[in-house]
Design a binder for these strands. Structure first.
Length: 168
DNA sequence: GCCAACGTTGGC
DNA sequence: GCCAACGTTGGC
């Protein structure tokens, strides 16, 4: 078996239809998504994240929109997967920060999906607050040490728990 | 700005 | 195929 990775504490099932996607608000925030309605999620350059988008995401899947690398990291809104995966055009563009010289239109390496705004949370649910519920979130990749995945599966129960915190 | 925890690259 | 060096992510 190629590329077996060490088992996560509780292996999340990628086919659950629930995801968390990170964005740096300085680059693209929940405000931006709300304004635009739908956004092509370009720039993912991590194989594991790509594989989730390419192999496991379905139109209509639910998304926790997460602000990272900012003053108040946390989940700020809800979105939906709005398209099947397709080649990310930025990989072919030499002028793009996401250009990948090893990628060609005939053999694209990176994909994107469209993400559609659903709503903002009534208040942001911060990472610190999510951590306080770690006992009920066993296996959530967001809480594993050194987590750097920008696209990750979330168990439905974990998804619901995090959303419920907006009214806690 | 610092640092831990990764993932990737490339020499061998 | 191994592994050290390097680059990146992301919380603090």
């Amino acid at each position: 078996m190629p590329r077996l990775r060490p088992p996560a504490p509780t292996p999340p099932d990628p086919a659950t239809g629930h995801w968390l996607m990170k964005s740096e608000p300085d680059e693209f925030s929940i405000d931006d998504l709300e304004r635009r309605g739908t956004e092509a999620w370009s720039g993912v350059r991590n194989y594991q994240a790509r594989n989730y988008m390419r192999d496991a995401m379905r139109v209509g899947d639910r998304v926790l929109f997460y602000h990272s690398s900012c003053a108040e990291p946390g989940v700020v809104g809800l979105a939906r997967i709005a398209s099947p995966p397709r080649a990310d055009p930025t990989q072919f563009d030499p002028a793009s920060a996401y250009h990948d010289p090893k990628s060609t239109p005939g053999a694209p390496r990176w994909v994107l999906v469209d993400v559609a705004f659903e709503r903002r949370l009534r208040r942001p649910v911060g990472l610190r607050e999510i951590r306080r519920h770690a006992a009920k979130l066993a296996g959530l990749a967001l809480l594993s040490p050194g987590n750097r995945l920008s696209v990750m599966p979330v168990l439905p129960a974990h998804f619901d728990l995090i959303v419920a915190l907006e009214d806690a």
